[in-house]
Computed example of a mutant assay.
Amino acid sequence: MRVLLFICMFFSTSIFANNLNDLNYITESYPPFNYNENKELKGLSIDVLEAATKAVGEPVSRSKVKLQPWARGYDAALKGPKVALFATTRTEEREPKFKWVGPIIATKVVVFSNKNVTVSDPSELGKYKIGVVRDDVGEALLKKVGVPASAMKVSPGADLLIKQLAAGRIDMLAYEQSVATYLMKAANVDPSKFNVAYTLSEGQLYYSLSSDTPDEYVNKLQKGLDQISQSGELDKIKSQYQ
């Protein structure tokens, strides 16, 4: 009887053990880190997710990841349950809101100008109309340095803002430098026409997990990321996007 009980307990715990496929994965169009091409999700952070989860024996397919506008995905990650949002810039303001796995890769958030303007003091930014993506790190960083909301043109995505910058309808754009450059080229907008007026932050991109996510998932995903980092696979993935 005891043996039967033990067997039942073993199989019940095995069947219901936490698996990384239990998480709800959400990303946005943020190339070259994550984006949709020919109805398939691609990008550095997508490749890293597949490799890291495979390394711990719980492979998560890119087909499981939902592509959503950033503001919607960010709201879902704040509310849960068990949401993994990426790629997310880790900031002091965001730190207590999520559980973090990373880093994935370095990131730089800058303010592009279409008027060859260079800003030495962030207080000067309030004089310009600056495009930002709703709930994006660029918007948060501008608020942190005291730029008023009235100086910001808020949009659900960066594509429209890039067109407005090129047309002179906004003076500046606050966004991740590599992503903005990628989107400019995709929209046939010459990046050399703009200059970096101000650097808001230099940091790292992470997977941000909703605060309700059990630590077992967080630790497991971090373990997978650490393993591919130590094996050199992470650097190999990064090299494909340079």
Rank of each mutant, 00 (worst) to 15 (best):
Leu4Pro: 00
Leu4Glu: 08
Phe6Tyr: 05
Phe6Ala: 12
Ile7Lys: 10
Cys8Glu: 04
Met9Thr: 12
Phe11Gly: 04
Ser14Leu: 14
Phe16Gln: 07
Asp22Ile: 12
Tyr25Met: 08
Thr27Trp: 01
Tyr30Arg: 08
Pro31Met: 09
Phe33Glu: 07
Tyr35Met: 11
Asn36Gly: 04
Lys39Met: 06
Glu40Leu: 14
Leu41Ser: 13
Leu41Gly: 11
Leu41Asn: 14
Gly43Ser: 08
Gly43Tyr: 09
Gly43Ala: 10
Ala51Asp: 13
Lys54Ser: 10
Ala55Gly: 08
Pro59Phe: 09
Lys64Val: 09
Gln68Ser: 05
Pro69His: 02
Pro69Glu: 07
Pro69Ile: 00
Tyr74Gln: 05
Leu78His: 11
Lys79Gly: 04
Gly80Val: 07
Pro81Met: 14
Val83Gln: 10
Ala84Cys: 14
Phe86Val: 00
Phe86Cys: 06
Ala87Thr: 10
Arg90Trp: 09
Glu93Ala: 06
Glu93Leu: 07
Pro96Gln: 02
Lys97Thr: 04
Trp100Met: 03
Ile105Thr: 12
Ala106His: 06
Thr107Gln: 01
Val109Asp: 12
Asn114Trp: 02
Lys115Tyr: 05
Asn116Gly: 06
Asn116Phe: 09
Val117Glu: 12
Val117Ile: 15
Ser120Pro: 07
Asp121Leu: 03
Pro122His: 09
Pro122Gly: 15
Glu124Gly: 05
Gly131Thr: 05
Gly131Asn: 10
Asp135Lys: 01
Asp136Pro: 05
Glu139Ser: 05
Ser150Ile: 03
Ser150Met: 05
Ala151Asp: 06
Met152Ser: 10
Lys153Cys: 04
Val154Met: 09
Gln164Arg: 07
Gln164Pro: 00
Gln164Val: 01
Ala166Trp: 05
Ala167Leu: 12
Gly168Val: 03
Asp171Ile: 02
Met172Pro: 00
Leu173Met: 09
Tyr175Asp: 09
Tyr175Leu: 11
Gln177Arg: 15
Val179Ser: 13
Thr181Gln: 14
Thr181His: 14
Lys185Pro: 03
Ala186Cys: 02
Ala186Tyr: 12
Asn188Phe: 11
Asn188Glu: 13
Pro191Val: 15
Pro191Met: 14
Ser192Met: 04
Ala197Glu: 04
Ala197Arg: 01
Ala197Leu: 01
Ala197Tyr: 00
Thr199Phe: 04
Thr199Gln: 08
Leu200Asp: 11
Leu205Ala: 12
Tyr206Val: 15
Ser208Lys: 10
Leu209Tyr: 04
Lys220Val: 07
Leu221Val: 15
Gln222Glu: 13
Leu225Asn: 02
Asp226Arg: 02
Asp226Ala: 12
Glu233Pro: 03
Lys236Phe: 03
Tyr241Ser: 07
Gln242Asn: 15
Gln242Cys: 13
